[in-house]
Design a protein around this nucleic acid. Sequence first.
DNA 1: CCCCCCCC
Length: 615
Amino acid sequence: MEKLTQNAISRLLNGENVSKPCLQVLAYKRVVSEGQPRYRLMLSDGTHSFQTCIMMGPLIPRLEKGEFERFTIIQLNQYVVNTVQDNKKVIVILDPEVKWKGTEINGKIGSPEMFNFGAPSNSNTNTCGGRILAPSNPSPLRNPAFSARSSTTNGSGLFHSRNTSGEPFNEQRGISSSPNLDMNLNICRIQDINPYLNRWAFKGRATAKTPIRTWSNAKGEGKVFSFDMQDDSGEIRITAFKNECDRYYDLIEVGKVYTVTKGTIKTANRKFSQVNHDYEITLNSDSIVLPSDDNDRHCPKITFKFVKIKDIANYNVDSIIDVLGICRDVSELVTLTQKNTGRELKKREISLIDDTETEIRLAFWGNEAENFSASEGSVVMVKKARVSDFNGKSLTSVSSSFVQIDPQLTEAYGLKGWYERMRDNMQITKLSVNSATSDSGTWRTLNEVSVESISSNGGSLVFSAKATIVQVGRTQIYMSCPTTGCKKKLVDMNNGFYKCDKCQRDFDNYSPRIILSLAISDSLNEVWISMFHDEAEKILGVNGGELMAMKDNDETQFDELMTSLNFKSFIFRLRSSIDHYKEETRVRTTVLSVSPLNLVEYGKKLLSKLREMDI
DNA sequence: CCCCCCCC
């Protein structure tokens, strides 16, 4: 009997702080709740037994390997007491430690009775908070034992130090006046999270979750996933590496509310995260992430702000939007090779339309592309799709995107109804060029290369133009890293070796890379463009090594070759994008490809253009 | 500690 913690069951169900209680496993069974497998255990302290003790996530394999067999005595190093619907309590076991194996005990200790909430000694059950962290964890979270305040909420306790009197919500949350609450825990609004907070915690709803991704590079390898959390003040991104990745991946479910405390707060890099917050959080071994009250009033339910497809035209590249559309077409899975890295990519495109009678194409990648299946006419909802400039304007699904086919939403039913009425009677405008059917896409003249015109096009424009080289600027030939896909400029160690900072390696060789700066002109404008290696080799007719040798050994020949580019005309495939450099905003244009000007073909193109114009 | 989200 002394192996078990006396009255632990009644004490902790009554909201008391019980440090590392030892309990005996009497039974368990597998259940599936909201699609997630978990185990429900009956635990006993010798006096009482309680049968809604939950193990989930990473504990499941341990349990299934027999670690917590019947009669095992486990010590709960970390656990949470949750209140679920009808004020029922659930003990969530987070960190069980086996004290005695079931075979060592081989029998039930004491004569435990089923714990009864109706018993007089438990009359204050409802006034106690439900969510308790074992104090063994040196955490600022303790049983707050809120009384009056939390009783007005749905009974879940720990983080209900918020004022529930209906005051404006931008008061600092969680600084409780409760005399029992000797903690310095700052329940922050998510928007207020910053690296200068000493002790903080926040509560938010998971709005997105990425798959686990593994990496391997010069610095090492590992795995990682991220999730986004939102309260009524804002949203923040949380990232979990390696151990924390394993620990939290199964726990986090989109739509659920969690309380988070401890972790590294660092500056968010807007380049990589579209979440609107200056900071992001990396979980570490001290971090605590607890399932919380999914109905918390500070954590609004996930909402969708569907952008009408027609209006996507006005969104900048890289914007993150929600979209709802009828799937008009699903392309085959295609495999393509990434030019820079040689990596193989799998892609599937679908096209979406809505009642603005506008069509946009949406790309899925990798597994998502392989697994995507929806038929023509179904409604496709994507939360957090990224606006892209591929083939005009298009959308792409990213790791934090959430895709649903035929969602149970009023808007979806409305859209479906519209489609059934209108499907044969529509004038569809396309925002995306279908890459399968397009020639080289849109043709433009160089007067359209201006900050104003590119800006109004979402910051980037890909187009074809016929133009003539009118000036050759600086020609750079540099020693680049010979690693496939790495073009980093090498540092000459002057000992026969060249160092790549990116690959963190020394090489005894390098590959010469060319960058040309050219002014090209058509009848309307002159534009400076950058032309990189492959395309430069094409128009120069020499390779990088030859050009480098020529520049070193025969400058006259080199100058002649460069000068010979003047007044040559080509069909350029160009990308112009807005570039912010220091205080300046300007357009940067790079060559995607260059092809010879075929006068007959080009003439035909102009003719058909004239006919279109009805001249 | 990732930082890839790709394609013309």
